[in-house]
Design a protein around this nucleic acid. Structure first.
Length: 299
DNA sequence: AGTTGTGTTGAAGA
DNA sequence: ATCTTCAACACAAC
C-alpha cells in the first residue's frame, strides 16, 4: 500500500487528468459516470497520501480522489501509447490494453492475468494512463471536495495509521484496554482502532511477537504489549522495504509483485513446518478470516 | 464438479 | 451495543 503511494508520488504528481473511462460505474460512488468524468477532467495531480488502506489523490481546485482497492484492486501507471489509432473515449480499449511500452527483454507485468481486469482508466496529459484493474470489482472510487472526503463516515471512523508517529505504545495500550474481551488477533485488524493492518500482516505480527491470536487483549502483559507494538512496526516496515506482499494478487504501479511473500513465516503456511521450531503451522478462523500461527513459538 | 478460500468492509441479523 | 454472518464479485485451488 505504501509502495503504491510512493510510486504514484514519484510518477504522476504534476500530471493532469485529461479524460476518464469506466466500464463499471458501480465502483464510482455518489456520482454518475458522466459527472465524474466531467469533474475530473483538467485536474492536476498535487499529492498522493493514505490512511491505512485508503488512498487519497489530491487534485487541483481542492478536489480529492479517494480510492479503496479492497481485495484485488491495482493501480497501474502505463507509459504513453505509441502506435495508437484515433482514440474514442466512449469506447476505449477494444481488447485488454496489454503489451504496451516497456523495453524489449524486460518482463512485461502488464501481461499478467491479474493486471488485465481494467475497469477504469484515467488518461493523463503526458499521454500515460493510470489504469485501475480489479478482478472482483469490490474497489471503490469517490471524487469530491477534499474537505468533504475528510468528512466521509468511513474516513472519520478510521483509527490512527499503524505507522504514523501519533500511534504510540501508550495509545496502543489504551486500545487494548478498551477491547479487553476481544482476541488480540481481532483487535489488530480493526481499522477503526488501528488502520493499516490486514489479514496477512496480523498473522506475521503475532508470530514475530510470539503471541497467540486467540489471547484476550486483557491478558497481554506490559512486556508482551511492548513486544507486540514493536512487532507491528518491524513487520510493516520490512514489508514496505520489500515492496509489499504478493502471496495472492497485490501488485505495484508497474504491475510487479512485491517480495515480502518470500519472507512470510506463518501466513498461508498451514501444514508446513515452522521456520523457527519445526512444528506444524496451524490455521484457525477468526471472524471469517484465516489466522495462522505456530503453536509452539506463540504463547 | 461442487466447495472453499481470497492485502476488505459495510450492512443485516441476533 | 456488540458480535456473527452475509453479501458485493470472480477465479483458482482443493
Amino acid at each position: 500500500m505504501q509502495t503504491i503511494i510512493s510510486d504514484l508520488n514519484q510518477k504522476i504528481v504534476g500530471d493532469t487528468v485529461v479524460d476518464f473511462w469506466s466500464d463499471y460505474q458501480k465502483a464510482i460512488k455518489s456520482k454518475t459516470l458522466e459527472n465524474f468524468r466531467r469533474e475530473i477532467k483538467n485536474k492536476r495531480i498535487i499529492n498522493v497520501r493514505r490512511i491505512g488502506k485508503n488512498i487519497f489523490i489530491d487534485l487541483s481546485e481542492n478536489k480529492t480522489l479517494y480510492i479503496h482497492l479492497k481485495m484485488t484492486g491495482h493501480l497501474l501507471v502505463k507509459p504513453q501509447i505509441t502506435n495508437h489509432k484515433s482514440q474514442n473515449f466512449s469506447h476505449p480499449p477494444t481488447s485488454s490494453p496489454i503489451g504496451r511500452g516497456r523495453g524489449e527483454g524486460a518482463k512485461n507485468y502488464f501481461d499478467d492475468k491479474v493486471n488485465q481486469y481494467i475497469h477504469h482508466i484515467f488518461y493523463l496529459k503526458t499521454g500515460r494512463t493510470l489504469e485501475f484493474s480489479d478482478v472482483r470489482k469490490f474497489a471503490k472510487i469517490v471524487l469530491d471536495d477534499t474537505r468533504k472526503i475528510k468528512e466521509l463516515k468511513e474516513i472519520k471512523a478510521l483509527g490512527m495509521d499503524a505507522l504514523e508517529k501519533k500511534f504510540t505504545l501508550e495509545k496502543f495500550g489504551e486500545i487494548l484496554e478498551k477491547r479487553k474481551d476481544a482476541p488480540v488477533g481481532t483487535v489488530l485488524m480493526e481499522q477503526e482502532k488501528i488502520s493499516g493492518i490486514g489479514n496477512i500482516y496480523r498473522s506475521e505480527i503475532l508470530f514475530e511477537a510470539g503471541i497467540l491470536p486467540q489471547r484476550k487483549a486483557s491478558s497481554i502483559s506490559v512486556k508482551e504489549r511492548i513486544k507486540l507494538y514493536n512487532s507491528i512496526q518491524k513487520v510493516l516496515k520490512k514489508a514496505i522495504k520489500l515492496r509489499g506482499t504478493s502471496d495472492s494478487d497485490y501488485r505495484d504501479t508497474a504491475g510487479a509483485p512485491g517480495n515480502f511473500q518470500k519472507a512470510l513465516k506463518v501466513y498461508r503456511r498451514n501444514g508446513a513446518k515452522c521456520k523457527k521450531c519445526g512444528i506444524i503451522i496451524t490455521r484457525v478462523k477468526m471472524g471469517q478470516r484465516s489466522v495462522f500461527y505456530c503453536p509452539r513459538c506463540q504463547k
